[in-house]
Design a protein around this nucleic acid. Structure first.
Lengths: 180, 180
DNA sequence: GGCGCTATTTATAAGTC
DNA sequence: TGACTTATAAATAGCGC
């Protein structure tokens, strides 16, 4: 939200990253607060301190956070991951839906391509001044779509990051886990 | 952000509150995700499920949350629990597949773009009356594709944010509800 | 009654000092 | 460099199907 569309990626510049962190941290907590108030649901945000790996930013307060965290613990110990499995199942369904959407997009594109090809056949039959005009319009559309795809790729990176195992430092999870 | 300035207070109307919760939960998690990516800091959001007091919405995933929670809990006591990474690994592969499909779509679009460019090349050679008509069709297709992609955008965000599936399928908001 | 749309408000990337 | 300002992107409240 600003002078340029948000590009999703690590901000290498230190000063810029720091500034962005402060701004976004603030508004993130504000949003969490609003959600809590508007819907009357307990919420908690934990952020690893960017400067001290052993510190965690806890919102709204360690005491409040504890209630939720205890709830999470109970969830873990009682259902033993079943809940998580449910979540993953949901994710899988979403992924399946995404695939469907992609198929549709591909079909649309093929049809568009077919139309363009048809135009090629018409080239010997006469021509209107409009051709260039219309062609340009289509070209712009295609370019816009290409840009969308580019952004999509960024989002997919986001998605891919969720299961990032590099972030997981749990020695206890090793026995027959997925890591090679 | 909307037709009226946000008034901070409990939303008594059930349907409205539910809707607001979903919208804001989504964007809150998205914001958290962005902060994580942009600044490369682990972050975690916990939200008590509005419909089930014993459930907690955990973002980005129980596994990731644990790292932060464990860090926090070091101040309180020790805890253990485990979760298989298999599901995450599976999702990782699914995401990779999705990425591949996207690449494909991208290629298709580039090809279509090339065809359009060719169209422009034909401008001096002759044209049929139907040409304008067909060109319009192509434009419409392109527009449709752009819209599909837009939709995909939203879906991907959904996936990235791992919304709480339990709440999404809830007909009722729960014990907090007040009629109005 | 959930879903998508649109008018507006909010968040923020840059720019300024 | 950090506090303010500005130009824009993003979020979203209320509405219609």
């Amino acid at each position: 939200m600003g002078r340029k569309p948000t590009k999703l990626g690590y901000i290498a510049n230190d000063a810029l990253r720091r500034r962005t962190f402060l701004k976004r941290e603030t508004s993130l907590l504000k949003k969490a607060s609003e959600l809590s108030v508007l819907c009357d649901v307990p919420a908690c945000v934990l952020i690893a301190s960017p400067c001290d790996p052993n510190r965690v930013i806890i919102w709204p307060s360690p005491v409040h956070a504890r209630n939720l965290i205890d709830l999470v613990r109970r969830d873990w110990s009682s259902v033993r991951g079943k809940r998580a499995l449910d979540q993953d199942a949901f994710l899988s369904r979403e992924v399946a839906r995404l695939k469907d959407q992609l198929q549709k997009v591909e079909r649309e594109i093929r049809e568009a391509e077919a139309k363009v090809t048809m135009m090629r056949y018409l080239r010997g039959e006469g021509c209107a001044d409009r051709l260039e005009e219309v062609g340009f319009l289509v070209e712009e559309k295609a370019r816009a779509v290409a840009e969308r795809i580019e952004r999509l790729n960024g989002l997919l990176l986001l998605v891919a990051q969720v299961p990032d195992e590099a972030f997981i430092n749990q020695p206890e999870l090793g026995p027959n886990g997925a890591s090679g």
